[in-house]
Amino acid sequence: MKALLLRDLRLAVRAGGGFGLALAFFLIVTMLVPFAVGSDSQTLARIAPGTLWLGALLACLLSLERLFALDYEDGSLDILATAPIPLEGAVIAKAAAHWLTTGLPLTLAAPVLGVLLHLPGPGYGVLMLGLALGTPALSMIGAFGAALTVGLKRGGLLLSLIVLPLYVPTLIFGADAASRAAMGQGASTPLLLLGAVTLGCLALLPFAAAAALRVNLR
């Protein structure tokens, strides 16, 4: 599992791996928002938590399609399926690699982009904490969606259609935590619920994703 994780990380960081694309996309979305709604700092401060969450979520979606597709095409996925580690373990390793190359950088970049959107002071800590708690769920749900659509030639659009509705609970709790904190309220309830969603996803979805992969490898 560790070897698989390291391999995926290396592949992602190398040229053409798509690392950094998600970050650039996140920056562009954040930059486009003031153009769309106006640069009034009060308006921006109010919508900043939700916008940052939405941007992170869409950026996560970008690299999902290649999560299993490349390995499926060149046959490495077949080797993984017959490898000594269970396919569920391989799914977790791949989702973890996806998180380390998208979710984690997005979490670290969010405060910087928060400054651009005039995010109120108390919001920063909770925004980062929420993203750190919630983005693993995004990667895991995405891995399930990618496993479903891996056999399709043009699965990208379908993948978004399937995955985005599944992101709703994570987005609700994450954005709510950040905006509560930005308004100076306690945010522990949505944060706890967000953590619960993530833990549930991590515990159950590898099985569903592995089952979908087995169907596609049949």
């Binding site: 609970p169 609700i172 709790f173 709510d176 619920l193 089952a211 169907v215």
Partner: peptide, 28 residues
């Protein structure tokens, strides 16, 4: 057959998330 399998898995996972979204929306 593959379509039936994959859509079944989507339906199961979707059901869990549909219920989850319902309560998340109530919270929201």
């Amino acid at each position: 057959d593959a379509a039936a399998d994959l859509t079944s898995w989507l339906c199961i996972v979707g059901s869990v998330f549909a219920v989850l979204s319902r309560y998340a929306a109530k919270f929201w």
